[in-house]
Every structure is written in structure tokens, then in C-alpha cells.
Amino acid sequence: MAGGNNPVRTSAEMVKRKYQHKLVQQIDEFGTSGCVGCGRCNLACVGNVNWLENIIKIERAG
């Protein structure tokens, strides 16, 4: 931006923002997560964490 500001300067920050937008901010705002279950998080994950299932578990628990 004009003053040299970039809130997502590194790809790490971009990824953090993507997850926060869907899983933190939208819960604050709408009470439900923005996860639509597309599963791309699982495709990208190299650690086999099974994001999708955990996101769904957390949402069902809360």
C-alpha cells in the first residue's frame, strides 16, 4: 500500500490470514466457521494432520 504497509507480506502471513478469516473472524462475526468443507487444507497438508476433520470436530463441539 502507499505507505509501504503490507499486512500479508510473507506467504506465512497470507496463510495465517486465510485460516484466521475462515476459522476465527467468521466465528466472531457470525457464530459459525467459514469452512465449507472443500478439503484443500488436507490436500496441501504434508503432515497428515487431517485439518478438515478437526475443523468439523471443533465446530460441532462449539
Binding site: 499486512p7 478469516h21 473472524q25 467468521q26 466472531d28 462475526e29 467459514g34
Partner: peptide, 8 residues
């Protein structure tokens, strides 16, 4: 849209 949402 939520793009500029920060700190609530």
C-alpha cells in the same frame, strides 16, 4: 466480506 476484519 471480512477481508479488512481485524481485532473484531
Amino acid at each position: 466480506c471480512g477481508h479488512c476484519y481485524i481485532g473484531g
